[in-house]
Amino acid sequence: MNKYLKVSLTLATIASGSALLIGLMNLATVGAIAANKENKIKNGISRFYPEQYYYQYFEMKENSDELEDGKLLYPTINSVYIVDVPREEGYKRGYVYSTSAKNSYGQVDLLISIKEAKIDEIYVVKNTESYGQTLEDNYINKYNNGYLKDLADVKCGATYGAKIVKEQCDDAMRHYTNNYAKEGE
């Protein structure tokens, strides 16, 4: 009996010590982790809108209106940021989509900016694709810098990665067309 008690007590003590340490570390880092996530999104939006802006956003995947036959209408969209940039008369409105998609090579999370009914720029939030660098150099950056006219040609040396980027852009564009296109800029 003594032996079992000793084993149980040892395990309980070590587990409690571990829990305490992890809890303390969590307390110390939770604020910084939340701030990092917010900063990443803000940095992305600031890149699209270097001037002063205001934004409101809503989560997509929690919105049941976006379901069709139990499936998400825009499966890659996480949230939409509606950005208002103040002008001398009124404001200028833009849309930024936070999207994510994955395949067997990894995951790509993006911020997609739509201005004047066109995908203006793509900002990579997370890219764990095996051919991630090729995907950014030969596809995303080329589109951002105007060397690629559209995203249709996914043959860039990282075809599967490019396909999920295109999928995300298509979802964003479809959502924009169905919901905001009439509002205009």
């Binding site: 571990s18 992890i22 570390m25 110390a28 880092t29 982790i33 990092n36």
Partner: peptide, 17 residues
């Protein structure tokens, strides 16, 4: 358990800083 504790601590640290 000891190793997992330090890995979790390191993970939190890296995610934060």
């Amino acid at each position: 358990v000891v190793i997992a504790t330090f890995v979790t601590i390191v993970k939190m640290f890296a995610e934060a800083f």
